[in-house]
Design a binder for these strands. Sequence first.
DNA 1: TTGACATGATACCAAAAGGTTTCCTATAAG
DNA 2: CTTATAGGAAACCTTTTGGTATCATGTCAA
Lengths: 108, 108
Amino acid sequence: MSLHTDHAQPVFRALADPTRRAIVMLLADRDLRVSDIATRFEMTRPAVAKHLAVLKSADLIRVSIAGRERINHLNPAALKAATDWLAWFDRFWDDRLAALKSAVEKDA
Amino acid sequence: MSLHTDHAQPVFRALADPTRRAIVMLLADRDLRVSDIATRFEMTRPAVAKHLAVLKSADLIRVSIAGRERINHLNPAALKAATDWLAWFDRFWDDRLAALKSAVEKDA
DNA sequence: TTGACATGATACCAAAAGGTTTCCTATAAG
DNA sequence: CTTATAGGAAACCTTTTGGTATCATGTCAA
């Protein structure tokens, strides 16, 4: 299976931390600067900056520089790597497919 | 948003490790014992057992005991927590695509 | 030009994660 | 009964992770 070429690794790694998932959701709503994000969590700005670095390395966020400010915006397309990996298992828990499968097997 | 109640945490945490994702794929194919899995990786059985413990704690695998053997089988339904979290962003990049599309059309 | 602000960079720390080795127990098989 | 097999459990080690405090730098504004 081509899933063996594990390009989803950085994305799953990034999403493993609850703070980072919360940041992703924040950025889904609007673009934010590091310090904007930091005020919304009970942790220091450098801590948030580290989380952003992990998200960046997974290409989940992009940064545009405007003067002394760096605007972080979400790149939702990067989530596709994870979605694709998970989609491979759809056939297992889809009840309709399971029903169809047993029907087909019975028929055969 | 109800996603704030982060029940997806154990699943994302479990999927963050490439070995564990590989184990999940193995178990999608067939049920296996700990030592069966261990032979397929370049690590010891206790190491694999630890990975299985993480997967169990996310309810991604279930164990049935048969004599001295413990059969691990996948519980694909547990992946739904992660899939649902990611699905929240589907409409987001759908919107983006729509915006892109209209921009392109405007340009033409 | 002189601060104030936004952020990067570095050093450091404790805890968690991923492994290994070793040992113990329970069951199956000869 | 004795031995081999399956796997749990504990002790230990190293690297990574998530976080802090502190300092350096570039830019905007008075």
